[in-house]
Amino acid sequence: MSGNHVIGEAAIRAGCRFYAGYPITPQNELTEYMAGAMAKLKDGTFIQAESELAAINMVLGASAAGCRAMTSSSSPGISLKQEGISFLSAMDLPAVIVNCMRGGPGLGNISPSQGDYFQATRGGGHGDYRNIVLGPATAQELADLTMLAFDYADKYRTPVMILQDGMMGQMMEPAVMPDPVDPKRLPPKPWKLDGADGRPSRIIKSLYLDPAEEEQINWNLAHKYEKITDEIQRAETYRTDDAQIIIVAYGTAARIAKGAVNRVREKGVKAGLFRPISLWPFPTRILKEVNKKVKDFLVFEMSTGQMVEDVRLSLEGKGNVRFYGRPGGVVSTPIEIAEVIEGKFGRV
């Protein structure tokens, strides 16, 4: 199965029963997989929507009705979905959104890229909100984090984005699929809309004309985000114990960086890898632990430098941070990154 298929199968197993999407490369395998998978389920809905806007708003409707719902796209399409993501966030509605990132801005290209990090981790749409963002790096993580994304979305009543890229989506790699969840046995959603039968009618909305009321809504969201930040920071540390330099990278870039770490280790350079898995909240706490022993950091991204800001913020000036980026859909190699590591530190 390609990475996109893995996400689709994991979503079905997570109890996702509503998917709406619109064709865009390089994520079409996911849309196609959902079409086939939903058709086999009695309670499943697949809609090829007329636009990304329609797709995300269909997901909003399905979510308001209490259903685990997902949409997916690639960078330009995710820009269109931002309206809906802002509304979902404001309405405390769960949803899972997959961004299979490609080169940008504009139409860009269809090669793997990490240029949407800011958009994903800063909220992306209008207003004062954040979304949980997970950055898988293996097929196994695509499966596991997709399951987790649905759990987080329901638990915190918030949209969760899986931020992968064209390479993760297209790549095939073995993965063990998690056990399926029966959607009927998921925790009840007492806030959902299903008709005011024997209970007072409910409203799900985001309009609060009174500024004092809207301020309270904003603080409610902020408190939720504080809780999330406290509870779900995730990262992988690789060969960091005796490391003198740490490469910080996520997703596809982290795989390339891992190869580079292994290469330079063979030559005696004590390098390690810090791989954020939760991109928002950024795993500041775990990075600070690593920082107690290591001062030199090299951030590698397939962009001109976005996550590097979070690294710098997390380290609060207590580390030397270098950056190396390959934007535009260029996939660099472990050899190239190894050379970058050695460029400064040479042989140890």
């Binding site: 790699e173 795989r255 891992k258 292994n262 190699t333 472990p334 050899i335």
Partner: peptide, 9 residues
């Protein structure tokens, strides 16, 4: 474990 699926060489 395979680090990078991109083959440099």
């Amino acid at each position: 474990e395979i680090a990078s699926p991109v083959a440099s060489s």
